[in-house]
Simulated scan of single mutants.
Amino acid sequence: MTKAFIAETLQKSAELNGVTALKVAGALVDAIVAEMKKSGKFTLPGFGTFTVRKTKARRGVNPRLGTPIKITAGKTVRFKASPTLRKEL
């Protein structure tokens, strides 16, 4: 799913013009990112929950050369589908 797809869906369902729909889609994505930065999770009822998780530093292997590399600690996003979404699928 892309921001353009979200904008197109908004444009059709809310009868918005293309520019306004793109602005709304961008604002929606920005609001989700801001909430995840602030609280570490974002829940969309009936869809699921996105949570930010920390990853530990670890050793990996360069697939091209086969040499060991260090992978630094970081953050990743996990998604857990809601029971409603699981039932629909």
Rank of each mutant, 00 (worst) to 15 (best):
I71V: 12
L65E: 11
R58D: 00
V77F: 01
R86P: 04
P83M: 03
E8G: 15
P68W: 03
T84R: 00
T55P: 00
T72C: 04
T51F: 01
T55C: 07
L16A: 09
F79Q: 00
F5S: 11
I32Q: 01
I69P: 01
P45F: 08
L85Y: 02
V52H: 03
M1F: 03
M1V: 05
R59S: 09
N62V: 06
V61C: 03
K38W: 08
R78I: 11
K75Y: 10
E88L: 09
K23V: 12
K80H: 07
K70E: 13
T49L: 05
A27E: 06
V77N: 06
T67E: 08
L85G: 04
L65D: 09
A31F: 04
R53T: 14
G60D: 01
N17I: 14
T2I: 04
R78E: 13
P68K: 06
R78N: 14
T43D: 11
V52F: 02
R59G: 09
D30T: 11
F42W: 10
N17L: 12
E88K: 15
I71E: 01
L89M: 13
S13M: 10
M36I: 15
V33E: 10
G74Y: 06
F79N: 01
T43Y: 06
G46V: 00
K37R: 15
V61Q: 10
N62G: 04
G74I: 08
Q11I: 10
V52M: 05
K3T: 02
T55F: 07
